[in-house]
C-alpha cells in the first residue's frame, strides 16, 4: 500500500515537471489549448510507460529471464505490424469501431509473435533464455521488414492514416493527435490488465522457483503462466496500438526498481510501473524540447533506444561476468 502511494507520488512529481517543458518555450503554459495538449501527451506517455514496465516485470518473472521485455521478445513488433495493417485497411470501418479494431489487431499480433517466439525457442518443454531472446529479436526484425514492405507497396496508393504518420508503428512515439476513444480504450485495457497482474503478483514470486517447487507451494503454475502471459501481451498491445513499439522501457524500469525494492513482485510491479510512466513522460518532454534541433518532433522511441540499448548490453555483460565467476568458484 505504502509502496503504491510513494510510487504514485513519484510519478506525479515527474509528470508535473514535464508540464513545464514545451516545444519552444519552457515554463507553465498559459494558454489552455497548449496546457491541454501537454497534459494529454503526458497522460498517454505515462500510460504507455507503465504498461510496458508492468509487462516487462511480468515477462521477467514468468519466463525466469532477467532480459525479457516486450520489445525484445517481438511482442511489440508483432503488435505494431498488425496495428499498422489495421490502420492501412481501415477507413471502411465505423469511426467508433476503429480504435477497437486497431487494439484487437495489435493484440492478435502480440499473441501471435509471442506464440511463434515461444514455439521456436522451446526445447523439450524448456525455454532457453538466450534462444528466447534471439528468436524474439529476429521475429521483431521480420515484423519490421514486412512493415516496410507494406508501406512501400502502399506508397502509390493514397492511404490516409487516421492518426500519426506512416512510420508511427515502426518507431514508437507519443502522438499528439490521438482520438479520445483511442486513449480511453487503451487506458481501460491497461488499467484492467494491470489490476489482474497485481492480483497475481504474489503467485509470480513463487513462479521464480522451479515448476515443482511452485506446485508444491500451491500455485497452479501452468495456468498462472498462461493467464499472465496473455494479460501482459494484452497491455503491451494496448500500449503499442497508441504509441508504436517503444523499446527498453520494459527492460530498464524493472531492473532499476529491483535495485531499490528487491525482487518481490508485489512491490516491484507498482514501483516499476511508476518508473516506466515517469521515464516515458520525461523522455517525451526531452524529445519535445529537442525538437528545435531536429526537423519535427523526435520520436521518443529513438531516445529510449539510445538509453536502453547500452543498458541492455551492460546487463548482458554483467550477467555473463557473474555466471563466469560462479563457474570458476565452484
Amino acid at each position: 500500500m505504502i509502496v503504491c502511494l510513494v510510487s504514485l507520488l513519484f510519478w506525479a512529481g515527474v509528470a508535473l515537471v514535464c508540464v513545464f517543458v514545451g516545444h519552444h518555450a519552457w515554463g507553465w503554459p498559459r494558454e489552455s489549448f497548449i496546457r491541454g495538449e501537454r497534459l494529454t501527451t503526458i497522460a498517454v506517455a505515462s500510460l504507455v510507460g507503465a504498461a510496458l514496465a508492468a509487462a516487462g516485470v511480468t515477462y521477467q518473472a514468468v519466463l525466469r529471464n532477467p532480459l525479457a521485455e516486450p520489445y525484445l521478445l517481438g511482442v511489440s513488433g508483432g503488435a505494431s505490424l498488425m496495428a499498422y495493417l489495421a490502420a492501412v485497411s481501415a477507413g471502411g470501418l465505423a469511426s467508433w469501431l476503429e480504435p477497437l479494431g486497431q487494439q484487437s489487431a495489435a493484440f492478435i499480433g502480440a499473441i501471435a509473435a509471442l506464440a511463434v517466439v515461444m514455439l521456436l525457442s522451446n526445447r523439450r518443454g524448456r525455454l532457453e533464455p538466450v534462444t528466447l531472446l534471439l528468436v524474439g529479436v529476429i521475429v521483431s526484425a521480420i515484423c519490421g521488414a514486412v512493415y516496410l514492405l507494406i508501406y512501400h507497396l502502399n506508397l502509390r496508393r493514397e492511404v490516409t492514416f487516421g492518426t500519426g504518420g506512416p512510420f508511427r508503428f515502426l518507431v514508437g512515439a507519443i502522438n499528439t493527435n490521438l482520438t479520445h476513444q483511442q486513449i480511453a480504450t487503451a487506458a481501460g485495457i491497461i488499467a484492467a490488465g494491470w489490476g489482474v497482474l497485481l492480483f497475481y503478483a504474489g503467485q509470480l514470486n513463487v513462479a521464480l522457483l522451479s515448476e515443482a517447487e511452485a506446485e508444491a507451494l500451491g500455485v497452479r503454475i501452468h495456468r498462472l503462466r498462461w493467464i499472465v502471459l496473455i494479460v501482459a501481451s494484452l497491455i503491451t498491445a494496448a500500449a503499442v496500438a497508441v504509441s508504436g513499439p517503444i523499446g527498453f522501457v520494459g527492460l530498464v524500469c524493472p531492473h532499476v526498481a529491483r535495485l531499490i525494492v528487491g525482487s518481490d513482485t508485489r512491490r516491484l510491479l507498482p514501483v516499476a510501473s511508476a518508473f516506466g510512466a515517469a521515464l516515458l513522460a520525461m523522455a517525451d518532454a526531452v524529445s519535445r524540447s529537442a525538437s528545435t534541433l531536429t526537423y519535427g518532433p523526435l520520436p521518443v522511441g529513438v531516445l529510449t533506444g539510445l538509453l536502453g540499448g547500452p543498458f541492455f548490453l551492460f546487463l548482458l555483460w554483467h550477467r555473463t561476468a557473474r555466471s563466469a565467476r560462479a563457474l570458476s568458484s565452484s
Binding site: A201, V219, R266
Partner: peptide
C-alpha cells in the same frame, strides 16, 4: 527472509497480501 516468506504462499490472500 524473502525465501522463508515464500513458504507462506499457500496462505496468502488475493494480491499476495
Amino acid at each position: 527472509e524473502e525465501a522463508l516468506r515464500l513458504g507462506r504462499a499457500p496462505y496468502w490472500g488475493a494480491f499476495g497480501l
